[in-house]
Simulated assay, not measured.
Amino acid sequence: MSRPPTFTPPPCAHATTLSTDRGAFAVIDARPEGTPKATVLLLPGYTGSKEDFIALHEPLAAAGYRSVAVDGRGQYASSGPGSDGEPYRQGDEATYRQSELAADVLAQQAALGGERVHLLGHSLGGQIARAAVLTDAAPFRSLTLMSSGPAQISPSQQQRVKLLLDALSVMGMAQVWEAIQALDAPEETDTDDELRARWLRHSPAQLAATGRQLMTEPDRVAELAATGLPLHVVSGERDDTWPVPLLDAMAGRLAAARTVIAGAEHSPNTDRPGPTAAALTAFWDGLPGQGQAQ
């Protein structure tokens, strides 16, 4: 589980609601002074939320980019079937099919004014972002896959997700949280209460549906390469969800830019936000036509 350093947006950002033709989504919207070079749409990973990108907003704004981090359907502050303490029903999982979540991303882009945006997805968010691009690449200037691999997650992580899904089928979200804390024994941080509050607001149906996606995702690298969209693969130097050599190979197959963030693991956005933001903005700044209306 990602651990953002704070849940409070920086001065350049504010929490708000993005209204789309597929419903309302909770976002953190950060803007630079003056006219932005472009807008970046940020999708969080499994069990994560828009707060996972909080430490990126200031450096992205300083570089001239508007950044919009979103809670997907059923994640934290964005409602969906099974949210807000409703009982878990397997039928709710249909709402969280990958095709539905990809359609949400396209609706979010349209609601940002219709301009082409840079799309970034972390972990699960990367696979949802990929599905959105494969549905329609035209709304996007580029795609960055952050700690998000070519297909299903590693066998060890599949076992962890399966344990979680088994627990969700017989326990409430509060009971599962306590079990996770006992298993992982994380060190205490100032955000622990906020992490628990975030967990309790996730839809268990969303966690079940997207967990199954992570365990069964097919390899769609060739399809993505064929879109011709500028691509960037970013990761830490260690990752047990998709091994780093696998991410290296994927970047080669995609002919993508490749960045490894020293000192980071599965969440470079929270582990090393400064170098991560610098790598992102260098990639976007280097694209043809950057800074021109598109």
Rank of each mutant, 00 (worst) to 15 (best):
E187L: 10
P186L: 07
H202V: 03
Q181L: 13
T216Q: 05
Q175Y: 07
Q206N: 07
P186R: 11
A197P: 14
A205G: 01
P218C: 01
A185H: 06
W199F: 11
Q181E: 13
M215T: 06
T210I: 06
R196F: 05
L200K: 06
S203M: 05
T191Y: 07
V176K: 12
G211M: 00
G211N: 01
T210P: 04
A208E: 08
T216Y: 00
A179P: 15
T191C: 11
R196M: 08
T191W: 05
W199S: 03
T189C: 06
P186K: 02
L200F: 04
L207D: 07
R212S: 13
Q206K: 06
S203V: 02
D184A: 14
E217P: 05
Q181K: 14
A209E: 08
G211V: 03
T216H: 06
H202Y: 02
L214H: 07
E187V: 08
L207C: 05
Q181I: 14
R198K: 15
V176N: 04
V176T: 10
W199Y: 08
Q206T: 06
Q181M: 14
T216S: 05
T191D: 07
E187P: 05
W199G: 04
R212C: 02
E217L: 12
T189H: 00
T189S: 02
P204C: 04
A208I: 14
